[in-house]
Write a protein that binds this DNA or RNA. Structure first.
Lengths: 336, 336
DNA sequence: TTTGGTATTGAAATCGTTTTCAACACAGGG
DNA sequence: CCCTGTGTTGAAAACGATTTCAATACCAAA
């Protein structure tokens, strides 16, 4: 590919390599005519600076990494897809780290990245705070859907609380009163927020929160199945179920179908995420949509600003992306 | 992290940087006592060579990339998981390129990688031959489950033909005679091989191949659904369906359930892949297992050998990994 | 003892940038 | 007219490795 060096470009333009370097990194400080001449020449011969040489002299860190805890989960796969697309657009190499929900793997990946002077790391929900804290000491970090203590780390997340609350309020409007909740993993901030939204929606409508109506899952399809099985052991079945993500909702629906329990006739169902992947059942799932593109774009922007050394702004950012209730065909109105 | 340079190590050991470099890259040529001393010192102070400096002087290419056409497909997500794990173990940065089944994206990713002097690229099935051919000119390549013309590119693949044939023969043993096939995308070598396995199994058992019993899919769940719908329009339904991957099989099963058609009582079903992800239905899918870990390990090994410049062996390798029929609960024996 | 070969090591050039630092021109203020 | 400040550029020194080439030591063969 590009066989030219900065010296040759300089010679071609009758200037010095220093100046060429300047138009590369700080175009404003070189006089317009010369700058344009250099830019044109670079264009013509298809010059691309040698990335290794650049990074050698500018001792800056470089490259991005993205941690996800389970790449088989379509929600996270989607995040991988978006972020890697954005990174490539900017010409920044991205290392995808699928930790398989394993702290040891987190550690190994992180060690490796820090050794390689990684420029920044984006963590999706599900990565341990220990890993994140360690990373923060050596490099820039941004969290997606993973809250830390207020303001300590930059983070972008969906409005999990409002999304959950809205979902439950929708069920309440449909006259449901006994609403089951399939929660996410304990201690995950996003899961806790969704639980809180569920609780608050109930209590603000004078329905007492009943822990027996909560089944804890791990976000995988299978735990939706177990959750439904659990709910069916209750003396009174819930008339509706709100699941902390689509996959568990689909697991529950699937199990219901096998048992000849109709969704929505017997039980209404709402999910969370709106993974396009799962528009597969012919009854379309009602769900709270997370705006994954916005989530990723936003996280990426913050990271870019950090990489550019925007240290003037010492305060860490926290951005909340609104969710949207997507009404499908899995909820039915109970007769008053 | 590592703040030491090769010069400091040299000084610490009373030798020259050249020698330190030698123990790094070619340990055999330095005398044992000195070598050990240097090795120990590096160990002690936690020295890690600066990757950028290395790559600058040794003008070698570096790093790996993995192309998949759809990271939301669990089969490919699994490949991403395995390969990125292997790469990290070797301390080699990996760039994951999810092309979203889009040739333009393939092109952009490839340009980017070549500019960055990528060391090698692993292509999974689904990437266009044009992209692969172009990559081959500039860097090392290995294909997973993607055949090229015989012997031109190194490739590792499952034994698609035998796997398919075995699946169909199993159905024949169960006295099925009208067997539908949900194929993969046209022109995909792996898909063609599975189709060929299907055909041959039939014809070797004196059953005429009937094109009406083949429905072409795109590997996604949805196309399994459409395939089943298609089969049901036939005057005589197939008694069994062999699907070119699990996802489509599951789509078909799902649709069947909704229509109150029982698998396996009304229709038997066999998939291909054995994605662990999909052990979710309580009727376990009978399927042809691809040995993904072996597939990935093998591809990775070949790549490593290429990276180490094993040019002595000019011949490209082609490795076939056996598949295994996993008998689940979705096939039933017809009465003779 | 001399010669030739081999094993081991160091000095110095090199890779392609970035980054000081100094030089220069030119402007306006006194 | 001199001085100073500003804008623009080039020379040269890093950056931290690898690699070439020559030097040295040592051993076996003649």
């Amino acid at each position: 590919m590009s066989k030219y060096t900065i010296n040759e470009i300089a010679k071609l333009c009758g200037t010095s390599p220093a100046t060429v370097s300047r138009v590369l990194n700080n175009p404003d400080i070189v006089a317009a005519p010369l700058r344009e001449k250099i830019e044109n020449t670079m264009q013509e011969v298809g010059y691309k600076p040698n990335p290794f040489a650049s990074r050698l002299s500018s001792k800056s860190r470089w490259g991005l990494a993205l941690f996800v805890f389970d790449i088989l989960n379509p929600f996270f796969a989607m995040i991988v897809r978006r972020i890697s697309h954005l990174a490539m657009e900017q010409g920044i190499p991205l290392t995808v780290c699928d930790t398989e929900n394993n702290e040891e793997k987190e550690r190994i990946y992180l060690d490796y990245l820090l050794d390689n002077k990684i420029g920044g790391i984006i963590f999706a929900e599900g990565i341990s705070m220990a890993t994140i804290e360690r990373a923060r000491k050596y490099t820039d970090t941004v969290l997606i859907d993973r809250h830390s203590e207020e303001g300590v780390v930059s983070e972008v997340s969906s409005d999990n609380y409002s999304g959950a609350r809205q979902a439950v309020e929708y069920l309440l409007q449909l006259n449901h009163r006994r609403i089951g909740f399939i929660s996410g993993p304990e201690k995950w901030p996003s899961a806790e927020e969704r639980l809180r939204g569920y609780k608050d929606a109930l209590e603000l409508n004078d329905i007492k929160f009943n822990p027996a109506l909560v089944s804890q899952g791990d976000l995988r399809f299978e735990s939706g199945i177990s959750a439904l099985e659990y709910f069916l052991t209750l003396p009174e079945w819930p008339t509706a179920i709100f699941s902390a993500n689509d996959q568990m909702a689909l697991g529950a629906m699937n199990k219901a179908q096998l048992l000849n329990i109709s969704v929505p006739d017997d039980i209404s169902m709402i999910g969370f995420d709106n993974i396009p992947y799962y528009t597969l059942y012919n009854t379309k799932l009602t769900t709270v949509e997370q705006n994954i593109p916005a989530l990723c774009q936003s996280a990426f922007n913050i990271m870019m600003r950090k990489l550019e050394g925007d240290n003037t702004e010492t305060k860490e950012k926290r951005i909340i992306i609104p969710t949207q209730l997507k009404i499908g065909e899995t909820c039915r109105k109970l007769i008053g």
